[in-house]
Structure formats: C-alpha cells, structure tokens
Design a protein around this nucleic acid. Structure first.
Lengths: 125, 125
DNA sequence: AATTTATTACGAAATTTTTCGTAGAAAGGT
DNA sequence: ACCTTTCTACGAAAAATTTCGTAATAAATT
C-alpha cells in the first residue's frame, strides 16, 4: 500500500500503468524513445523492483511479464504524503495552495477542484 | 529561484527559515534534538549548500553565520513542480486532488482553499 | 546440429547523497 | 604562555541510486 518509488522506478511504473503488463524489452523500448538507456539497466531496475515488491512478474517462456504491484493512486499518495510531511508541515492545505500557485490551472480545472471539495464535505450544500 | 534541495538539505533550510540566521552549531543543536547527527555532518552539509548557492554566509569572528539563499516558497514551488511533472503528468489539478484525498483537511482548511480558488479566478464571485 | 539472437542473473562500476574522522587554526580561560 | 574548547577545511567512508558489462542459458533461425 505504501512504498515510495525512486525517480527511475516511477518512470518504469508509469509505463506499466499506462500500457499494461509488459516485458523488460517492452519497457526498455518505450523508455528508449525519450532517452538513452541500456537494456540491462532497465532489466536491473525491474529485478530490483521485483525484490522490493513494486512489481509482480510471471514467466512466459524464456521471458518475464511484469505488472505493477501498487496502483498509481497508492504511489501518488505515498509521494504526496512524503512531500507534505517533509516540506509542508504535514498540511494538505499548504501543499494544495502551493500547487495551485506553482502552476496555473484552467478555469475548467479549478471548477473540478471545487466539485471535489464539495464531494469531500459530504454533499453539504 | 529554482533549486531542488535534497531531503537533508531541506531539513537544514527549514531550521534557517524558521529560526533565522544561525551558525552551524545552532543548526546542529536543533537537529540533534530530534535525531543523532554529528557536528561535522551538519557542517559539511552547510558547506555544500553554500557551494550550491542554497545558503549565504558571512564571517563573524571565527564562525560563520548562515542564511537561506532561497525562500521557503521558492523551495516549495520547486519541489511541487518536480513532483507534479514526474508523478502527475504536469497537472496541478491532479496533484491537488491527490493531496486532498491523501490526508483529511478540516472544514476550516477546505474553506481557505475555496477562498484561494476565488482569489485565483480574479475575485470572480 | 550449429549459429545467431534474446533473455536472465550476477556483479560491479559510476553517481549522488549522507555521514564522519582528522588536522589545523582561532578563540577563550587559567 | 599553555591548555582546552570550538570552529573550519578537507578528504574520504558509507549508503542509496543509477548504470552497465559479462557470462550463462534458452529460444529461434538457418
């Protein structure tokens, strides 16, 4: 439920969240589109992530097929609470205001946030 | 303006933001209340932070007096945009909603967020 | 079957971050 | 003046993260 992936681990998890179960080859091909990265580098990461329990894998012939062991939502929560605790005195409100100020949101997005606030207050008027 | 401090660097910056200009001794005394940390460890960090431009210092007799070179707000912005880009597809809205869901805010805090949203939309009713 | 290709495991190098030890200089007390 | 304490600078060890090379094995191709 809670496991804070490192930066590169997160990159790999995102490929799996987005594209579904994949082999090391799949993931490496994808990553290679954006930056130089050796096959064995990706392999090693996925092996480590397997040890850590960040991904599961099952054997398919010679190769392994990997799947995320944690949801994107759980990983995000873990990263958020960590940042909240280390830089925002544990306050969600402070982090929220910081985020709203750090990068502009569209009116549509702001509206969605309002709706979410409404739902948090239990449908209270 | 933009410099993402590491976890331990952030800890030291927080002492300076909160307590004002301080010596290595001051900072180390403070940190030592919470956890074991050697004096030279803190010293080294503050020297490195000086090299990186995260703090300024001026000589006072034998010792140095350190001050943060970046504001807490700027450091927070830097950390937020980094997290936003690496884990939330660059969307402030996604990060905001994640934060609101990750830890409960009080009704008072939610109200402040609403007020902030109002102000963002240019005082629009 | 022999050769090439693809995959894994293992170990370790490279890098970044964190921690500390030692030496020397400066200051203060006796 | 001497001793003790405090500070800095420097280097390097320790730990965590990231990257890659090599060897072995399994599969596919010829």
């Amino acid at each position: 439920m809670n496991a804070k992936p490192t930066e590169k681990e997160l990159e790999i998890l995102q490929v799996l969240w987005q594209g579904g179960p994949a082999t090391v080859r799949d993931v490496n091909d994808y990553l290679s589109e954006k930056r130089e990265v050796g096959y064995t580098t990706t392999l090693k990461f996925m092996q480590i992530m397997h040890e850590k329990g960040l991904v599961t894998r099952k054997k398919d012939g010679k190769t392994h097929i990997y799947e995320p062991a944690i949801s994107e939502h759980d990983a995000q929560s873990s990263l958020i609470t960590d940042l909240m605790d280390t830089a925002f005195k544990g306050s969600a409100m402070r982090l929220v205001m910081g985020a709203l100020g750090a990068r502009k949101s569209s009116p549509q997005e702001l509206e969605k946030i309002r709706e979410y606030l409404d739902s948090l207050e239990g449908g209270k008027k």
